[in-house]
Structures are given as structure tokens and as C-alpha cells.
């Protein structure tokens, strides 16, 4: 079930790597608000940064005039983040998706990191590229909120 507009936070920012710190702060604030556990808060922030790095570098080719759009959908049991770029995109291979790169490779870890840290990662290449990252609330976090 997708979040209603009342549970959606959206931002648009120029394709500049130095602005990733802004996204990081917002992601961290949202997971704090949702009372995610610390390890999950780090996992979400790391994964959002990776998705935005890909969108800026590979999607929009670091064309600062081309924005990336980041949407946070807050549900009672999970957080979904959509990262959209308007570029030609890239097509991850099965190897990108599932296996770590050569340990000493300088590049090629972004998708593997996202898949390792999030519960679900999906790509949509129908209009630019949209990466969907989902993290479910841990049972202990849910119990803490309920009490």
C-alpha cells in the first residue's frame, strides 16, 4: 500500500554531489521521526546517498541544471524512498544487483550496497530512472512505538 499525500515528503535538488549532505540530513531526520533503530537509520541514509550518487553521476551526468527528485513515503510499517533522475540512465546487470564487485575494484559497489542494506530495491527505466528503496520497520522498533 502506498503512502497517502499526507505521508509523503518530496524534494528536488540540482545534480551536485556536494548537496548529498542535505539529502542525508533529511533521510536521517525522517528515520529518527519514524523511530527506526540506529543500524537501520544508517542503512537507509547510506542507501539513499548511493541512489542519489548514481542519479547525479550516471543518470544526469552531473548536469547541475538537471534535477533529481527524492520522495520519501512514510507508512506505518515501512519507509519507501523513490530517487528519480531525468537522464538516459543505466541498466544494472545481474552481477551489479546480486554480487559484490571484485574486492579491490575502484567502482561498481553502489547497487550492491543498496541491495545489501535495504529490504527491497527496484528500478524503473520507463521515464528517466527511478530507484525505489524500501526499508521495513523492525519488530522491536514497532513495539517501542506502540508502547
Amino acid at each position: 500500500m502506498s503512502a497517502s499525500n499526507g505521508n509523503r515528503i518530496q524534494l528536488s535538488l540540482p545534480s551536485r554531489l556536494e548537496l548529498l549532505g542535505v539529502v542525508d540530513k533529511i533521510a536521517d531526520g525522517i528515520t529518527e521521526y519514524l523511530e527506526f533503530e540506529d543500524v537501520d537509520r544508517d542503512a537507509v541514509a547510506i542507501s539513499v546517498i548511493e541512489a542519489c550518487t548514481n542519479a547525479i553521476q550516471h543518470g544526469n551526468g552531473q548536469e547541475s541544471g538537471q534535477p533529481i527528485r527524492v520522495t520519501f513515503e512514510l507508512d506505518s510499517d515501512q519507509l519507501t524512498i523513490l530517487v528519480h533522475d531525468e537522464g538516459k540512465g543505466f541498466h544494472p546487470t545481474p552481477e551489479d544487483a546480486m554480487s559484490p564487485p571484485d574486492l579491490l575494484a575502484v567502482r561498481g559497489r553502489g547497487i550492491f550496497i543498496m541491495r545489501s542494506m535495504m529490504d527491497q530495491v527496484e528500478f524503473d527505466f520507463s521515464n528517466g530512472t527511478t530507484v525505489s528503496l524500501t526499508k521495513r520497520r523492525s519488530k522491536s522498533a514497532e513495539a517501542g512505538t506502540a508502547s
Partner: peptide
């Protein structure tokens, strides 16, 4: 405060 995969690449290149 944090490192992304491109930043990891910096460290790996330096290690090499």
C-alpha cells in the same frame, strides 16, 4: 561523517 561508494573508490585507489 560518511563515505559513499565513490568515496570508497578513492580509498581503494590510494590503497593500490
Amino acid at each position: 561523517s560518511w563515505v559513499n561508494s565513490t568515496g570508497l573508490g578513492m580509498l581503494i585507489a590510494a590503497y593500490h
